[in-house]
């Protein structure tokens, strides 16, 4: 029955912090099997939106559904279908990579034997097996992203929600992550991720939404949003911005 529903549907999600409106009513339908890019400048509300969508932050208004299950009314069903990699959130980083994976797997109610097998495979594929028993807190930024992705993938979720998966990741690791995500979508999974890097989004995504000032400004398939221009032009036009005239900051050049 879940297949008739979009993988993720957000309706009227809104959040206000004190006096600042972070997200002002976001509607989004992420079709099953799509590779969805959520674009936006810093402070646009990407993290806030995704946090509300996965149950980390209680919205002031609106609802979020994962394959038809309400994240806030039926969290157990919704969360079992979800794999999440939040940004700006620490992992339980005083565990080693393998320990962390085992923890996540058992927390999801998986069979220990399956956890062992998948953890070994993931560590191997993500080139983290060499780290041995190094604690995650001592990992490099790129390795932390990779182990975070592994934790999100371990239980074989139907929908992956990734916040800034390519931030602070070197090109080799980024290529690896792209490959894995491609295979995941090819196998019937759905991915939504946030980013402000146009190249990555243009290369990966089938669908794009541009978020600015807490609202969706453009949404559709990549071709629809981009038209015959480059995505970057559209983005800058939508978001608005200023360009330096060259008069200011003259003290920078000597």
């Amino acid at each position: 029955m879940t297949d008739q529903h979009p993988a993720l549907s957000l309706r009227g999600l809104a959040k206000r912090f004190d006096t600042k409106v972070a997200v002002a009513g976001v509607d989004l339908a992420v079709p099953t099997g799509s590779f969805y890019g959520l674009l936006g400048p810093n402070g646009a509300g990407k993290t806030t939106t995704l946090s509300m969508a996965v149950g980390l932050l209680r919205p002031d208004a609106g609802e979020a559904r994962v394959l038809g299950y309400d994240v806030w009314a039926d969290p157990v069903r919704a969360k079992s279908l979800l794999g999440v990699m939040p940004d700006g959130v620490r992992l339980f980083d005083r565990l080693s990579g393998a320990e962390l994976l085992a923890y996540h797997g058992l927390l999801r109610g998986m069979d220990p034997a399956v956890v062992d097998q998948r953890a070994a495979e993931l560590l191997d594929v993500l080139a983290l097996a060499d780290a041995g028993r190094t604690l995650v807190v001592d990992y490099s930024a790129g390795m932390k992203k990779k182990i975070g992705l592994a934790c999100a993938l371990l239980h074989g979720p139907r929908l992956l929600v990734l916040d800034e998966p390519f931030e602070a990741v070197d090109p080799v690791s980024a290529a690896l992550i792209r490959d894995i995500l491609h295979r995941y979508v090819g196998g019937g999974g759905t991915v939504i991720f946030s980013s402000h890097v146009m190249e990555v989004v243009e290369r990966l995504c089938s669908h794009v939404a541009i978020l600015a000032e807490g609202r969706i400004k453009r949404v559709g398939t990549l071709a629809e949003v981009r038209g015959d221009r480059s995505l970057e032009d559209v983005f800058v036009e939508v978001v608005g911005g200023r360009t330096a005239t060259g008069e200011e900051l003259s003290w920078l050049s000597r």
Partner: peptide, 19 residues
């Protein structure tokens, strides 16, 4: 940097056993 990491090799058992 919290100093050089201690990395004992020779992982015993699977991930679950390590946890």
């Amino acid at each position: 940097s919290s100093g050089p990491a201690r990395t004992p090799r020779g992982v015993a058992g699977g991930a679950v056993a390590q946890l």
